[in-house]
């Protein structure tokens, strides 16, 4: 089986988010970049499936040279090869076009990624790739098993989940508990250095939307504190000040 896992290169979830240049640029100062947490789940499941069924696992990122360490980390976790499309990921549509092209050329059976990136939270690239390729796209996927040419999946819905069956090839946006995050071991880190990382240029440049400026939410006021014997006072405020009761 040939599996493609698309990974994002995003600020660590503990990062402080700030902007520069009059709120028009994301400030990378002091920010550590990681594989997107949802993509990390997709990758972990892909490693398990590759180990079960054999075949080849490719990781893909659309990004500039700064994302190479993130791709190397994915190789250390267990991917066999990496591809980087050398372009700034301008918007979701732009990224989806690059992925669809790689996926088409490589004739993958499974195209996996996180349900959304943890930076721009669009949650749309898997669906776009599915539509571009005329393939089913399922998201958010909590379980993925392969039996022959059929994928058996659970998809999270409001208040529960639904079970699905669909033939391969397939595009899926993944989330927990599809697999446990994998931490690279020493052998993985060593072997990652010699695994192939191919850089290709973008060949389609359409964008649908662009960011004009950023803003931060207003600062919170001070918390109003109570102890267990002041419940009436608190409830009064919830009713009359917060208007929630």
């Amino acid at each position: 089986m040939k599996i493609l896992v698309c990974i994002t290169h995003v600020p660590d979830t503990t990062s402080r988010i700030q902007f520069t240049d009059n709120n028009t640029k994301f400030d990378k100062t002091g920010v550590q970049f990681v594989i997107g947490p949802y993509d990390d789940y997709a990758l972990a499941r892909a490693v398990e499936l590759r180990d079960q069924t054999g075949g080849k696992l490719t990781v893909l990122n659309v990004g500039e040279a700064e994302t190479d360490p993130t791709l190397r980390k994915a190789l250390a976790i267990g991917a066999d090869e990496a591809i980087r499309i050398n372009a700034y990921p301008k918007d979701s549509y732009f990224v989806a076009q690059q992925i669809a092209r790689v996926a088409q050329e490589g004739a993958y059976d499974l195209i996996l990624m996180g349900r959304e990136s943890s930076d721009y939270n669009g949650g749309m690239v898997h669906g776009m790739v599915g539509e571009m390729m005329g393939l089913p796209s399922i998201s958010p996927v909590m379980r993925l098993d392969i039996e022959g040419n059929t994928a058996k999946l659970s998809r999270e819905i409001e208040g529960g989940k639904e079970e699905l069956e669909v033939s391969l090839p397939l595009v899926a946006g993944c989330q927990e508990p599809i697999a446990e995050w994998k931490i690279p071991n020493m052998r993985g880190i060593m072997s990652a250095r010699s695994k192939p990382l191919t850089v290709k240029e973008a060949d389609a440049y359409d964008v649908h939307a662009s960011i004009v400026s950023y803003a931060l939410p207003p600062a919170k006021g001070a918390v109003k504190l109570f102890d267990k014997d002041q419940m009436e006072e608190l409830v009064k405020l919830l009713k009359n000040e917060a208007n929630v009761l």
Binding site: Y93, N121, E131, S139, E158
Partner: peptide, 23 residues
Amino acid sequence: KSSLGDAVAARLSVKLQAALVSN
């Protein structure tokens, strides 16, 4: 935005050639 709405909107964005802005 919802589990289904997000998934459908993404495909529609390609099908209709319409920019999708989420959240």
